[in-house]
Write a protein that binds this DNA or RNA. Sequence first.
DNA 1: CCTTCCATGTAACCGGTTACATGATTGC
DNA 2: GCAATCATGTAACCGGTTACATGGAAGG
Lengths: 175, 175
Amino acid sequence: MILGLLRRGPLSGYDVKYWVDRAIRFLWAASYGQIYPELRRLEQAGLVRSESVPQGSRQRNVYRLTTEGEAELRAWLLASDVGYEMRDVGLLKLFLADALSVDEQLELVRRIRSERQATLDRLRAMGPEILRPPGDTRVLVYDYGVEFHEWVVDWCDRAERRVAAEHRARERGAA
Amino acid sequence: MILGLLRRGPLSGYDVKYWVDRAIRFLWAASYGQIYPELRRLEQAGLVRSESVPQGSRQRNVYRLTTEGEAELRAWLLASDVGYEMRDVGLLKLFLADALSVDEQLELVRRIRSERQATLDRLRAMGPEILRPPGDTRVLVYDYGVEFHEWVVDWCDRAERRVAAEHRARERGAA
DNA sequence: CCTTCCATGTAACCGGTTACATGATTGC
DNA sequence: GCAATCATGTAACCGGTTACATGGAAGG
């Protein structure tokens, strides 16, 4: 991921974190505790080169891709792995939610909905910044993020209605 | 998650793995190396009780929820966290795919599509097994899995067309 | 002046995977 | 007889987070 981000031009560790958080947080996360040591490893491996570019007396080290780094990036992009791993606490809770009352279940669905909506809003707000300069596949994946969250929010709305409807059906059955 | 699965009736560590892999693999994963030690910790904490139920001379230890375990489960379900963490190698690669040729980009989108389609097929095939007995919120989340993967497959189809269309547009522009 | 942002890093911790080891049972 | 499935576990490893520490610059 770092090699891929660096391809467009040199970035500092801080920049890497900044762009990851804005553009691809919803599909990949990274912390400083991972980025800074990794940049060093990449430099030791000869895949990136660091360069000190202080802003006044504030230090700043930017990294740029080497020819070897570019080759490594290409090799990784062409490798067959396109898998994903998800850890979705909200949906997991919903799956196990028969231990809750109907009202509590509805509350849970609404909480999931509102969190996803918030993520969607953030993503939309950052769109203009993320997409300058555009870059076709970047726009593509940004749109994926937006559409996906729109879909989830809509699913939550339908799920809420389904839970409520089944509840009413059970009440009628019991009466 | 274990407490939630146990609520419907006693399960062995093997059973837990079996059901996680089938029903919720797409939103939460678990390995034996995590499940067995965790079951012990849960027992030590008094949240589950183990019981030896050998099948012939083949050992089998099933665990059932204690009253404390049920309370703990409810507390967890009601807690506010409904966040998610995603690690999507396919989409990450696509985001960084401007280092690839258009043909290679198309290849990547198709590979993502075919993997997601395979996951969808597996999920559908297991539907009848997963949903017996039904359990409202379990059906709900199963449907989420199916619909989500249908959406992703459709998105891949559209993405492929978009990549191809932009390529043709650039060629016309260059000509 | 004070807050926020820019910027770099580390140490402790932990959740989780991988690989391995073992053995009984079922069904072809 | 053999493969697949049922069943339980552990040790080494590792990817990644959290919390902490430090300090300059910009802007209100």
